[in-house]
């Protein structure tokens, strides 16, 4: 799986490159519009992470070039311009998703995976983890091949954690991913605990091991160890 990261800010670029390499992607980076343009003309990528404000041009033009070339690459816009117009324009031009800075790396990685899953028609469209199988198209979870009935939120929680096996996922990023802005209504992230407890119970009832580990004061980790 090959990614191109177009981001002019070195510190952010290095974080993205490193984080996504650990996720198992082949990652290349471009620091400017010129470099990005050259790379997309020369190579094929599965997904392009695109910053809109570049020193020598507009990221939207990279998107236009990709679409004009009928490139199969997915495009995820990461922009510091929070303007609604940019988002609308980006999506209209054919970007797959839009993420405003600042963002959670785990959220970025989850969205990236969703884009790749949606675009991958030949590949297996399922996530496997030990005895767990998640079929995102049907929003179904199987334990040892047996379906488990989960609520929408429990399913979203599981999918989010499962997307980051072995990684510490912060409570804030889970809350934001699963509940969105509604999480603002809570005084704290304590409500996550109730939902995770139910999820764990339902999975264990079907004979799955407990893979959801709590990381004290930080968040959770989905791990077999």
């Amino acid at each position: 799986m090959k990614l191109l990261i177009v981001e002019d800010e070195p510190a952010l670029r290095s974080s993205l490159v490193e984080y996504l390499r650990q996720d198992g992607y082949v990652v290349e980076a471009a620091v400017s519009y010129g470099e990005a343009h050259e790379k997309i003309k020369l190579y094929q990528y599965d997904c392009v992470l695109l910053d809109l404000t570049l020193p020598d041009g507009n990221g939207l033009d990279v998107l236009r070039t990709l679409k004009a070339d009928n490139s199969p690459a997915g495009v995820l816009i990461i922009s510091a311009r929070g303007a609604l117009d940019d988002k609308v324009l980006g999506l209209e031009l054919g970007a797959d998703d839009y993420l405003a800075k600042p963002f959670h790396l785990s959220e970025l990685s989850a969205r990236l995976k969703a884009i790749i899953r949606r675009r991958q028609f030949q590949g297996q469209r399922q996530l496997l983890f030990q005895e767990l199988t998640v079929l995102p198209d049907q929003a179904q979870v199987l334990v040892h091949g047996e379906p488990v009935v989960l609520t929408r939120k429990e399913y979203d929680l599981l999918l989010y954690l499962l997307t980051h096996p072995g990684r510490v996922v912060t409570k804030a990023s889970i809350a934001e991913h699963v509940w969105g802005d509604a999480a603002d209504a809570a005084d704290s992230f304590d409500f996550l605990y109730t939902h995770l407890k139910n999820l764990r119970r339902k999975l264990q009832d079907k004979g799955a091991a407990d893979y959801i580990r709590s990381v004290y004061g930080v968040g959770y980790k989905f791990s077999a160890e």
Binding site: E9, A11, L12, S15, L16, E18, Y19, A80, G82, A100, K101, P102, F103, H104, L105, S106, T170, S173
Partner: peptide
């Protein structure tokens, strides 16, 4: 937004 994004990414790393 950019420094905030950097801070958040580095802390997450």
């Amino acid at each position: 937004r950019t420094p905030l994004a950097i801070m958040q990414a580095k802390l997450e790393q």
